[in-house]
């Protein structure tokens, strides 16, 4: 009787946890499968029925994957591109968002709404015109092609503008009387007060830059400037795909992001709930 009562009382909790655990398992399973496969032999990887724990862990897969494709180079490229994008996006978003939030100029709303509309356009639509433009610039197969188009981001501008608008006008007046110009006010007062929003933007930019694949694949040809995600694709060949090496490479490609996640876990969770969006 008392056990039944206890169950009844805790039923909502039990159900909540059941759903959460099921969700967590669904999401974690592919990662587990990736790790598991990365340690298998090529034969065990395609064996049926599959094994969950590798019979004979092949740690050499990691070294093989790293050497087979020049991942040192790819990593350096991705890090370089991500840093450039990060700095660029932060700078352009801060300046653009400030203009949209504080200045009254003709056509402000029109420009802003037009920019928001651009957010609705999926990448495949502009990948061809993008290619043609970059070709005119002579930027195909350069770092420019991978960096410059991504130096401004509508979503970041939008997010930051909303945040800037919450900063009271009195602070601006006080700063003006204290002797600060608009730029001084922006970087000494507004930016420090917008840290949470800036962290959100930094996280989203890093994620999307680190994971970009189609754009660099289309816009570049030389291995020496391509990013890690394109590097991963080398393991997928028309004749055969070496799953074990691909999974080993995938593991070390996502590793930096996993580390980033554990360092900035709180901010990442907060930033998703703040933006109300998942990119």
């Amino acid at each position: 009787m008392s056990i039944m009562n206890k169950i009844k009382k805790n039923l909502p909790k039990i159900m909540t946890y059941t759903v959460l655990i099921a969700g967590a398992l669904t999401i974690l399973f592919p990662f587990f499968w990736m790790l598991s496969t990365s340690l298998k032999t090529p034969i065990e990887a395609v064996k049926f029925p599959p094994t969950f724990i590798p019979e004979n862990p092949q740690f050499s897969n990691y070294a093989d994957a790293w050497q087979k494709v020049n991942f040192t180079r790819y990593f350096l490229n991705t890090i370089f591109i991500t840093i450039c994008e990060l700095v660029g996006v932060l700078l352009t978003s801060i300046l653009a968002a400030y203009s949209f939030a504080r200045f009254n100029f003709k056509g402000r709303e029109f420009i802003f709404v037009s920019m928001l509309a651009i957010m609705m356009i999926p990448m495949p639509v502009y990948i061809v015109p993008g290619y043609m433009m970059l070709q005119k610039f002579g930027w195909i197969d350069t770092y420019y092609a991978q960096i410059v188009p991504w130096l401004a981001n509508v979503f970041s501008i939008f997010l930051l503008r909303q945040h800037f608008k919450t900063i009271p006008n009195d602070l601006y007046d006080a700063a003006v009387i204290d002797g600060y110009s608009d730029l001084g006010f922006l970087f000494k007062i507004v930016v420090p007060l917008s840290k949470p929003a800036l962290v959100t933007i930094a996280i989203f930019t890093t994620l999307s830059s680190w994971n970009s694949f189609i754009w660099p694949l289309v816009m570049t040809n030389s291995d020496s400037i391509r990013p890690v995600q394109v590097g991963l694709a080398y393991f997928i060949q028309e004749q055969s795909t070496s799953y074990t090496l691909l999974m080993a490479a995938s593991t070390f490609v996502i590793l930096p992001l996993v580390i980033l996640f554990f360092i900035a876990q709180k901010q990442i969770v907060a930033s998703y709930s703040r933006s109300g969006l998942k990119d």
Binding site: P168, D170, L171, D173, A174, V176, G179
Partner: peptide
């Protein structure tokens, strides 16, 4: 404003 040699105190303090 900064060269007018004035100082201002606001209703909601306007502290940074």
């Amino acid at each position: 404003p900064k060269d007018r040699d004035i100082a201002m105190v606001f209703q909601n303090y306007a502290l940074y």
